[in-house]
Design a binder for these strands. Structure first.
Length: 902
DNA sequence: TATGCGGGA
């Protein structure tokens, strides 16, 4: 057997660090304290009976329903302290809940319960729960950093925290900070237009952003429990806000939000006056939204804060990977030595990407093999390699971090750091740039890394062998998680493994093979995440990237990594996106391997060579460099950015991509000839929709069209996160589906078909809807969501005065759209999609009206395989095996001409 | 003529 190399995950990540950590200066900055206006303090909490901890052992009050609100008004605009009326109980009698603060968060969280004054029983139970939490909280790696983190933010406005998985940063950092003096709500004078001055409330809440809804809600619940703050009722200190769902009790001090939700709030509150601090969690995932948030926060920190009455906004950036230097440079106080020029100084240094051939290469043997890796040096350099015992306090002090890199021999990592722009300038003046940094070790069991000896020609086949070998040789417990690129690979490996499973001897455990990808129904996904119930059975999860970042797949001790994933890539020249399998980044490979060490020691099998690994890019390309930036540009413009090319972004898109976006926005009437945002553009941005769909709604509301309700119906269907039409898996399925949906599929294309589906569905009594869906093999959950979105969009349209106050209820008589109205609706879509059209060429293929690229109707369209019309409009297109048009409708060539003229 | 990596408002 080949030699194995034992690598601890923290070590790999930590090993990339090769420089000293600037120590936060010890000078006390008084400015932020001086500004502090005396706190409005209400020491007499109004007590009102309410429920105990939701989910707790005893729920004493059954009268209160969960305080979870629905609908956009409350979700996005509810100011804290607003009186929310529910269950017919007016809660206005309760006074503003300002909590006692003390220098010790623990003590205060125990005695300051608001609303529990009269209920000794509740108070005692909560007290016990909080005490129990204290024991586990103190064991978290981040706990000993508590005072350092508080200190850092008293002296600096920006703090970067590098906290690995399991460090406890997401739950603990807000709790460390909410009792800080700078976190108090203040009434400050703000000068307004016309020379008037108004008293405005600033601060009092800490926002913490999450990339995913599930993270925002579950973290809020967890933190509420740790603080003894109720998760139902009208008073509490911890809340959350995600689309369609928010819980914001009066007295909220810590608020978990999705990134998109914070951006939405910035439309109405560009200075984030509600907040004393914004904590950006998981910034390393680098979504477009988080990049925009980082830019806005940088402006708020370094720009004028007159809009906040001079009250500084504290910013905490948290990341699980160590590429903090660029972020530090980004947030550093502008000085002559380190002037930040958007899109120039921070160009990322990318290693050339491996081509498909280089990664696959050719190969004879498919046997897993291990080699000595470059990461043998451990974080501390010695000891502490036992994962079982290392789950205690593993806090990395800043000074120790300076030692570790010397032991790390990886040249490629070092050169990556060395070439990092701006790094040396800032390291020369530690602690002087207004940015503090803390490093916290994570909790991660040891994971042994194995590589292929030689490149594999067919990794699905090699993975099959590897999985079978693992199953035969490794004892239970120990589930296997396989990373593949897409549904097709998952299905083919699934069937190959199933064939083999039947041949396996009775003495071996059974194999429970579970696919896991986004298009699967939620229940099937959930099953893959859960522990396997059957005895003497090994779970083998075949997953896409979905398993890399979201919820932990429990039970996994073995990871098999194909080394690739499908990535979206925008091509500014063609104005379209492709979706192709590409080699993953090193960070991503490390993340995948880490999935084996969440519960115990684990092993990772990389189905590529170590040389391949070393040639991978360090980081993934951030999404903003891979996407059509039309959305991002509109978001900037609508939030007050006049010159988008000078907006500070950690990574600036290609200038051509920005120009394309501006051009498109101009065609849609979202920006005027000078590039300033128009009223149409502002309205577009208020919709929780792609900009194009927002444009369609505005066009639909015009009197000459008068087709807004229908457009809302269609767009509601288009923006559900799961497909309404379950896709056939076999040819037999295909036949039955066509038969079952005969009454719905329209020759007028996918738009009209969706309109018919949601119209029919909504007209049914609730009791009949499920059966109706089943008979037609439609996804009931998706349709339910469509109606929810429809409701939200109708409400926004009413607010925007696009829709009259009265609008039909859900249940109504369904009537198919008249042929005249069909034309109107399709032409309405053309106002935003004129460029996404194709004309039938003489050879019988479609070519795009703009650019003349060939394009084919995607098999998921109702128009697939039907007689071709003279032209088509499509709402989506993607380049995979070839250029495909999705969500297709037949149009006339002269309609396109007309639309392009305007 | 033959098919959708993953998030989010």
């Amino acid at each position: 057997m080949p030699e194995k190399v034992h690598v601890k995950f923290g070590d790999i990540v930590a090993g990339q660090e090769d420089t000293t950590i600037p120590d936060a200066g010890r000078k006390l900055k008084l400015s932020s304290l001086k500004n502090g206006v005396k706190r409005t303090r209400d020491g007499s909490p109004k007590s009102k009976p309410h429920a105990g901890l939701k989910g707790g052992p005893e729920q004493t009050d059954s009268s209160g329903t969960p305080e979870t609100t629905t609908g956009p008004t409350q979700a996005s605009h509810t100011p804290v302290g607003r009186i929310i009326k529910r269950n017919g109980v007016n809660k206005s009698s309760a006074k503003a809940a300002f909590t006692e603060t003390s220098s010790d968060g623990m003590r205060s969280s125990q005695h300051k319960r608001i609303g529990f004054g009269a209920e000794n029983i509740d108070r005692q139970k909560l007290h016990r729960i909080v005490q129990q939490h204290q024991i586990t909280r103190k064991l978290l790696p981040i706990w000993p950093k508590k005072e350092d983190i508080r200190h850092a933010l008293r002296e600096n406005d920006v703090l970067l925290i590098n906290g690995e998985t399991g460090s406890g940063k997401s739950t603990q950092v807000p709790q460390f900070l909410y009792t800080e003096p700078w976190c108090r709500r203040q009434m400050v004078p703000i000068h307004q237009d016309g020379g008037k001055t108004a008293e405005v409330s600033v601060g009092g809440i800490i926002a913490i952003t999450q990339p995913r809804r599930v993270a925002a809600t579950t973290l809020a619940r967890r933190v509420a429990s740790e603080m003894g703050s109720p998760f139902s009722g009208d008073i509490g200190e911890v809340g959350y806000a995600v689309r369609f769902d928010s819980f914001l009790p009066r007295g909220t001090k810590i608020k978990f939000v999705t990134e998109g939700m914070l951006l939405q709030e910035m439309l109405h509150d560009p200075y984030l006056r509600k907040y004393s601090a914004v904590i950006v969690d998981e910034i390393h995932e680098r979504s477009v939204d988080v990049d925009l948030i980082a830019g806005f926060l940088r402006n708020l920190v370094h720009g004028d804060n007159k809009g906040r009455g001079g009250v500084p906004l504290k910013v905490v950036i948290m990341s699980a990977t160590l590429d903090l230097r660029r972020i530090e440079a980004f947030f550093a106080k502008p000085t002559p030595a380190s002037r930040y020029t958007p899109g120039k100084d921070l160009r990322r240094n990318l290693a050339p990407r491996l081509s498909e051939d280089e990664v696959d290469g050719d190969l004879e043997s498919g046997h897993p093999k291990s080699t000595i890796g470059p990461f043998a040096a451990s974080w501390e350099g010695s000891g502490d390699s036992d994962g079982e015992t290392s789950s205690g306090n593993e806090v990395k002090s800043a000074s120790a971090a300076a030692i570790a890199p010397a032991k790390n021999a990886n040249r490629s990592d070092q050169s990556y750091i060395k070439d990092m722009p701006n790094s040396s300038a800032h390291l020369a003046e530690p602690g002087n740039n207004g940015v503090a940094i803390e490093y916290v070790r994570g909790r991660q069991y040891e994971v042994e890394i194995n590589y292929e000896a030689n490149p594999t020609p067919d990794y699905v086949h090699t993975i099959l062998q590897t999985v079978l070998q693992l199953h035969v040789t490794e004892p239970l417990p120990g589930d296997i998680l396989v990373f593949l690129t897409g549904q097709d690979e998952i299905e083919s490996l699934h069937s190959a493994l199933s064939d083999q499973a039947e041949k396996i001897g009775k003495t071996l455990p059974r194999m429970k093979i579970m696919p896991l990808y986004g298009a699967l129904p939620a229940a099937a996904q959930q099953e893959a995440f859960e522990k396997v119930k059957e005895k003497f059975t090994r779970k083998i999860v075949l997953a896409t990237n979905i398993a890399e970042t979201s919820v932990t797949v429990s039970g996994v001790r073995f990871v098999v990594d194909c080394g690739k994933s499908k990535v979206k890539q925008y091509r500014p020249r063609l104005g379209m996106e492709s979706l192709l399998a590409k080699p993953i980044s090193r960070v991503s490979a490390i993340q995948r391997a880490g999935r084996a060490g969440r519960e115990a020691k684990g092993k990772c099998f990389r189905i590529y060579t170590e040389e391949d690994f070393l040639r991978l890019d360090q980081d993934d390309l951030p999404e903003i460099l891979r996407s059509d930036v039309l959305e991002a540009v509109l978001k900037m413009k609508s939030r007050g950015v006049e010159d988008v090319t000078n907006f500070p972004l950690m990574d600036s898109p290609d200038i051509m991509a920005i120009q394309n976006a501006l051009k498109q926005l101009h065609i849609m009437g979202a920006v005027d000839d000078e590039g300033n945002i128009t009223n149409v553009g502002r309205k577009m941005a208020t919709f929780p929709l792609p900009a194009t769909y927002g444009r369609v709604l505005i066009a639909a509301a015009e009197p000459r069209s008068d087709i807004l309700l229908e457009a809302i119906d269609v767009i509601s269907c288009l923006t559900t996160d799961s497909e309404i039409f379950n896709q056939p898996k076999s040819e037999d399925d295909q036949e039955t589906i066509i038969e079952a949906r005969k009454d719905l599929m329209s020759t007028d294309g996918d738009i009209i078909t969706l309109l018919a589906v949601v119209g029919r569905y909504a007209s049914l009594p609730h009791a009949d809807r499920l059966d109706w869906c089943r008979q037609r093999l439609l996804a009931p959950r998706a349709l339910k969501m469509a109606l929810q979105i429809r409701q939200q969009l109708r409400q926004i349209c009413r607010q925007q005065q696009l829709l009259l106050e009265i609008s039909p209820a859900d249940s109504e008589h369904y009537e198919p759209l008249s042929p005249e109205k069909v034309v109107v609706l399709l032409k309405t879509f053309l106002t935003a999609f004129a460029a996404k059209t194709a004309i039938l060429a003489p050879d019988g293929n479609y070519v795009m009206a703009v650019g003349r690229n060939p394009i084919a109707v995607h098999p998921s369209s109702v128009l697939f395989g039907r007689k071709k019309s003279e032209a088509i409009m499509f709402l989506e297109h993607v380049f995979t095996t070839k250029n495909y048009a999705k969500k297709v409708s037949p149009v006339q060539a002269d309609w396109i001409e007309e639309a392009l003229m305007i």
